[in-house]
Amino acid sequence: MIGEVPLSYYLLLSAILFAIGAGGVLIRRNVIIVLMCVEMMMNAVNLTFIAFSRYLDSTTGQIFVFMIMAVAAVEVAVGLALLVELNRHKASVNINDFNSLKG
């Protein structure tokens, strides 16, 4: 199938997914959704890496994706632990409610 789908299709798709993820981070206030959007952004990057890796015949991109997956797993775990910890103080998942720090 490789010959049929040009590289630019994959790149454009991942640019769109990245933009949707970034938009979600900026628009939504629910921390869990924001974390999901960050994951979507990272996945979009993974797609770019693997597409390049395929078209350049190089494994570096795939190794990078491997690392990104490990990092993403750790990030989600830490982020959700932070959220659980915050919830002991304040029962909310809305970013705007976490506003005790003021100048």
Binding site: Y10, N43, L47, I50, R54, Q62, V65, F66, M69, V76
Partner: peptide
């Protein structure tokens, strides 16, 4: 897409890590 791009190993890892764990 990963399978289409001949990255089967990562395709499986994607399902295991993201869908299965995250």
């Amino acid at each position: 897409f990963y399978f289409m791009l001949n990255a089967q190993f990562l395709g499986v890892a994607q399902i295991l890590v993201y869908a299965g764990a995250i």
